[in-house]
Nucleic acid binder design. Structure first.
Lengths: 225, 225
DNA sequence: GATGCCGTGCGCACAATGCGCAGAAGTCGG
DNA sequence: CCGACTTCTGCGCATTGTGCGCACGGCATC
């Protein structure tokens, strides 16, 4: 039985992006989308397995919605205050993704959620082992499969350097920032771009090969220019 | 700052047992106890970090209490129906322990909760990797007992060597300090890092695989004992 | 004394990095 | 339009460190 998902985001482009990811993930039905607390409550009342909730909503608090919904919830939000994260988890969010994130990050967690449901739905009564296993499945290696020659720590450092830069940066600049070689920075930046997590622009105007400049993919609120 | 805990169980013997476990776990204040939903709401309103909630309560549903409480919640219950587990987690339970369980099971999870709080309280704004790390600390390996092939004495010696170093250290340095092999030091350091007790940095700059360097996790506001 | 389990060390496969360079991808001038 | 030149990217290879399977010693149990 395919799992039903409701995408709750007031930016229709973002909602569509997330719906596309759900659609592309095996085991999930065609997702619904809506843009407000009121509409989310109405659609969820029809029965839905999982809601993907942005915390910034026009008619109320996403955090309050997390508490009010009777279905499972993932929070997908640009809000990265530690207190917000804790409150969301405390109110029942089973996952918290900080925007911007790559399609694979969400897809992986959807896959993990499906396995979590399979473990708990497969039995009427569970032992402690099964409870622990289900929770671990849900929260296990959520990071995407990484090719050989790439380390999780270096990938994080590179992604953070780009995010912190506030403007497009070159491989050389990231290399200096992180303390790695230009070639290694280049490899990671290319990987992140391939995963859809970074945008690439070319800087023309000087002699020689144009420089690749990298910036975070914008999936947050506000119009894209 | 010691974390405050409220034990909610209508069996006073069980409540006392759980309170004793909390009392015996470092980093927690003298716990409060109560035996009903009404009393739990009243005591929690004064501010409490964590409630340990039994689902069978005389004046109402423990599951409803989980949703209503504004603090973090662990469910400790003999109720082992899969649907109940899912509902509890969906309503915000950060952990679910099926009665009867050993003192160590609860004590380990309290320790994991403390590290989870330290990770999230230690920063105003967090990155995705910090969110993931905090969740892993709460639900991952760190939540359980020590795996096979690890001794408490060695673990302690390794942790002390890192604490005493005053700067990030490599596995080879810890091995030399403690008098164990590099591979064994590596195993313990990796475990402690997975448990959220140590930070890992990579030392770049030479050809070959970068060296993992370990240091104590920077605690959040207030000293952890 | 035999057996099984636990924790450790050993040794090695391989993961992840930097180096250096070939060549890709531009600009510029004739 | 084309060749020369510049600047940058991508990649093969050597290097260094990690992670893991397995053997072994010690100890507890029968």
């Amino acid at each position: 039985m395919a799992l039903t998902v409701l995408v709750v985001d007031d930016d229709f482009r973002v909602a569509r992006l997330h719906a596309d990811i759900v659609r592309a993930t095996p085991g999930f039905a065609e997702p619904d989308s809506c843009a407000s607390v009121a509409e989310a409550m109405r659609l969820a009342a029809r029965g839905v397995d999982l809601a993907l909730v942005d915390l910034y909503l026009p008619d109320g608090s996403g955090l309050e919605l997390v508490r009010s919904l009777d279905c499972d919830v993932f929070v997908l939000s640009a809000a990265a205050e530690a207190g917000t994260v804790r409150t969301a988890l405390s109110r029942g969010a089973l996952a918290y993704l900080v925007k911007p994130f790559g399609a694979e990050a969400l897809s992986d967690r959807l896959g993990a959620y499906r396995r979590y449901r399979a473990l708990l739905d497969g039995a009427d009564v569970v032992q402690q082992d099964a409870v622990d296993a289900a929770i671990r499945v849900l929260h296990g290696q959520g990071a995407g499969t990484r090719p050989k020659g790439h380390s999780a720590l270096t990938e994080q450092a590179v992604a953070q350097a780009v995010a912190a830069a506030g403007e497009p940066v070159s491989a050389a600049e990231v290399a200096e920032q992180v303390g790695i070689s230009r070639a290694t920075a280049q490899r990671y930046l290319a990987l992140l771009a391939d995963q859809g997590r970074l945008d690439v622009q070319l800087r023309y105007g000087t002699t020689g090969r144009p420089e690749h400049r990298f910036s975070p993919v914008r999936a947050g609120a506000g119009p894209l220019s």
